[in-house]
Simulated assay, not measured.
Amino acid sequence: MKTKNADRPAIKPVDAGALVLLSGGQDSATCLAWALGRYRVVETLGFDYGQRHRVELDARERVRAWWADRPEGGALGADHRLPVPAFGEIGDTAMTAEVEIEMAANGLPTTFVPGRNLAFLVFAGALALRRGLSVVVGGMCQTDAAGYPDCRWETIKAQADALSLGIDPSLSVATPLMFRSKAETWALAQELGGDDLVSMIVEDTHTCYRGDREHRHPWGYGCGDCPACHERARGWATWQESR
């Protein structure tokens, strides 16, 4: 099976359907816009895994509602949400428990949830098969400063191959942000939906690991101090400087 990267996103036939992993954050909201311009029908999937920033589950509803009210959102199909509580039971991380956000002894940030993206792709592949969808779209990005191993191109490609072998040979995985910086992701949103889409991402999506919806910045809401906020803010500033 072939995975699609950001530089050469193969466009599937018009009768193809896609399942977008929609967390409610900037990246997944941009991926949804990307998919809506390419596929006949686009369904969305979110996961409740006991994340501390559960406000992202509300954010994904706002993102979908925004598209539902626009002509360009005509391809938007059903939404799905799956509970995956086992991540919190396996072991504490800064994403699922009151653990300090810092670098762990293994060289990875404590926000790393081992196997999260791999498991998400398995669930997404199984759901896509049942829904008659041939493409799973995810916002994994190996240029992210966090350096999560389950966001790397090699990891996603290997999992995509496994899905093809174990679920359906016609199933593919698209990662339109894989080789894009956060600044380039902002630029892609502008290209896909103009100022309206960028404004929606700023106001309605959520990235902050601490779930802060009180502090408003030019790039959106967040504590401004966690790695996710730093990455989003840095990308925004770089993009603004390049415009």
Score class of each variant (00 low, 15 high):
residue 149 P to H: 07
residue 77 G to K: 03
residue 76 L to H: 10
residue 67 W to T: 06
residue 50 G to W: 08
residue 181 S to R: 07
residue 41 V to N: 00
residue 108 L to C: 07
residue 1 M to R: 12
residue 116 R to A: 01
residue 51 Q to H: 03
residue 169 P to F: 13
residue 69 D to T: 14
residue 144 D to V: 11
residue 223 C to I: 02
residue 220 G to A: 05
residue 114 P to G: 04
residue 21 L to Y: 08
residue 101 I to E: 03
residue 95 M to P: 02
residue 48 D to T: 12
residue 201 I to W: 09
residue 198 V to K: 09
residue 32 L to E: 13
residue 34 W to D: 14
residue 144 D to Q: 06
residue 213 R to W: 01
residue 74 G to P: 00
residue 216 R to C: 04
residue 54 R to Q: 13
residue 182 K to T: 00
residue 143 T to E: 10
residue 69 D to C: 14
residue 47 F to G: 02
residue 160 A to I: 07
residue 240 Q to I: 13
residue 86 A to L: 13
residue 37 G to V: 14
residue 113 V to M: 09
residue 243 R to T: 12
residue 98 E to G: 08
residue 164 S to C: 13
residue 21 L to Q: 04
residue 44 T to Y: 04
residue 11 I to P: 08
residue 187 A to C: 12
residue 236 W to V: 08
residue 199 S to H: 13
residue 23 S to F: 01
residue 142 Q to M: 12
residue 129 L to P: 10
residue 109 P to M: 13
residue 187 A to L: 03
residue 50 G to C: 03
residue 29 A to H: 06
residue 23 S to N: 03
residue 132 G to Y: 05
residue 24 G to H: 03
residue 159 Q to L: 14
residue 147 G to C: 11
residue 110 T to I: 07
residue 187 A to G: 09
residue 241 E to Y: 01
residue 145 A to E: 00
residue 73 G to H: 09
residue 130 R to N: 15
residue 94 A to S: 00
residue 22 L to I: 13
residue 100 E to D: 12
residue 68 A to I: 02
residue 223 C to Y: 05
residue 106 N to V: 02
residue 1 M to H: 06
residue 129 L to H: 11
residue 86 A to V: 03
residue 234 R to H: 02
residue 238 T to H: 06
residue 30 T to W: 06
residue 126 A to R: 09
residue 75 A to V: 01
residue 186 W to K: 04
residue 81 R to I: 13
residue 212 D to H: 01
residue 189 A to W: 01
residue 19 L to W: 05
residue 142 Q to D: 15
residue 196 D to H: 10
residue 139 G to K: 03
residue 32 L to C: 10
residue 174 A to Y: 06
residue 206 H to M: 08
residue 4 K to I: 12
residue 219 W to V: 08
residue 68 A to P: 06
residue 120 F to G: 07
residue 8 R to E: 15
residue 77 G to N: 09
residue 85 P to K: 11
residue 118 L to A: 10
residue 17 G to V: 07
residue 140 M to P: 03
residue 181 S to L: 00
residue 180 R to A: 13
residue 113 V to E: 05
residue 211 G to N: 11
residue 58 D to I: 12
residue 155 T to G: 05
